[in-house]
Amino acid sequence: MTRLTLITGLIGTVILAALILIALFAQQIAPGDPLQMVGRPLLSPFADPRFPLGTTQLGRDVWAGLVHGARVSLTVSATAAAAVILIGILVGTLSGFLGGYVDDVLMRITEAVQSIPAFLLALALVSVLGASVTSVVVAIALSSWPPSARLVRAEVLRVRTLDYVDAARVAGRSPLAIAFLEVLPGALQPVVALIGITVGEAILVESALAFLGLSDPNLQSWGLMVASGRATLRVAPLLVILPGLAIALASLSVSLAGDALAARLSEGRRA
């Protein structure tokens, strides 16, 4: 691992840890409903000690919105990314191991889903399923799994041809034991590299859906805050800048931490 990866990885991990803590204790840090009108509209930051970052056009506390937005953003993206990787592992493993028709059919479907512009698909899914946190998770999962499925399949196919798998066959291991004890542990390692990227992207997709007003309207999220801040872009640009910064920070910290983790693991594999 280069020094740069190490440093950026550490920074990413620290920011991510802070964000997770904020999300976990959102209710303690900023009690109450962040969508409630609590003060005069469009207060600038530091003007009122009760609202350190000011208020929105509707008199909502910006700080509370950011804090509670962390919860929505991280939960949705982590769940969606977990689903993406699980679907990827499932499809990729089945495809790689079974081969033949199963592989053909699964790969055609993967290719088809990958050919649909992912965000358009997510958009369509949310609009069909209705605007809720669950449907956002489902939409992200169903639109972004193909790359992970292809990676897992490629890895399964690669590892299957290695000599140690033949050695296990010669030793008399059953196909199932070979799949789970020999091939999968090796094939799934590169999937770790996907975690950071997938979560980071999920954060961005979630925020974009919320920005377009397709997330749960009863939950304060960063994307929604940017969208409502647009109306007052000229007079109060901070209402757009702050929540966007939060999204960028979250996505960046996840991908930096993920990169470092992947580099660490691939080093461990070589040593």
Partner: peptide, 29 residues
């Protein structure tokens, strides 16, 4: 090298709609 790699990552983490709005604030407004 570090500068290019890191700033590319930073831009990659920014949501497109937000970057667009920032561009509007800066270059248009």
């Amino acid at each position: 090298d570090a500068g290019i790699t890191v700033s590319a990552l930073v831009f990659n983490a920014m949501p497109g709609f937000w970057l667009g709005l920032l561009g509007i604030i800066l270059f248009a407004v």
